[in-house]
Amino acid sequence: MTELFLKGHRACAGCGSVLALRYVLEALGKDVIVVNATGCMEIISSQYPESNWGVPYVHCLFENTASVATGVSRALKHLDKEGTVVVIGGDGASYDIGFGAVSGAMERNEDILYVCYDNEAYANTGLQRSGATPFGSATTTTPSEMGGKGEWKKNLTFIAAAHAVPYAAAASVAFLPDLQAKLKKAKQKKGFRLVNVHAPCTVGWKINPVKAVEVARKAVECGLWNLFEIDDGKFKLSRPVGEAPVAEYLKMQGRFKHLTPKQVETIEEHARSVKPELEKLEKANVNFQRFL
């Protein structure tokens, strides 16, 4: 493996997002320019005067990465310079605070490959709730005393598809060949491309650091994170929607420890209802780019 994300970073043991990053860069190769949002991946990799980035890298702020990437991409075009512009942003940066900028860049179909690493919380600031935190999860702002988060997770990949972008895909660090295939496909395309990667945070999810990949795999196997792509508007499942009981996934993680049987049942019902819907969507051969 040619490592473009270099050793010596400051991430926690077993960090799912770093795993994602290493494989993202390996799949994309050297001719990329990374624009990184404030968050864990920035803080663990870019402490002056050191850097773990083997490719050109720029960090500006938390909530403007899609717009900074817009400027980089437009300047490269006008200056006739090489490079695929790749955003690395967390779920907080992408689903929440920077969402307006992400939506604007999608609508303008800026030539950007946007990689969101979704660790389902604002990890860097101490694991607060985000729009990507799943129902029931305890975070430091939806504590177990409150019963965890009361709302469902946003679906950023479908939101991207609703902008009729050329490519939007959901991937996972537990399925690295699938993640890399999606990135390689996205790299060949022009315009706004999103690859949304489910990446466990061992500290936030309260899991054994050696279990990050196992937990990520279980999320897919029980249908709570589904692998698919929406390529030129066409939805396609990357693997059959998982049917394992959600309890198997929930009980692996301290963030769900407080859940009542009723809450587990609610999540189970939710997961079971997803499969037929996604299958209908695939069979119907709906073109997302024709909704507008």
């Binding site: 403007n64 899609a66 717009s67 900074v68 437009r74 300047a75 303008r108």
Partner: peptide, 22 residues
């Protein structure tokens, strides 16, 4: 010419363009 969706993005795009050497 980038008709962005907010001034926050206008100056951010300018930041990116400048970082890219423009």
């Amino acid at each position: 010419f980038v008709p962005v969706e907010a001034e926050f993005s206008a100056i951010s795009a300018v930041f990116g363009a400048s970082a890219a050497g423009g």
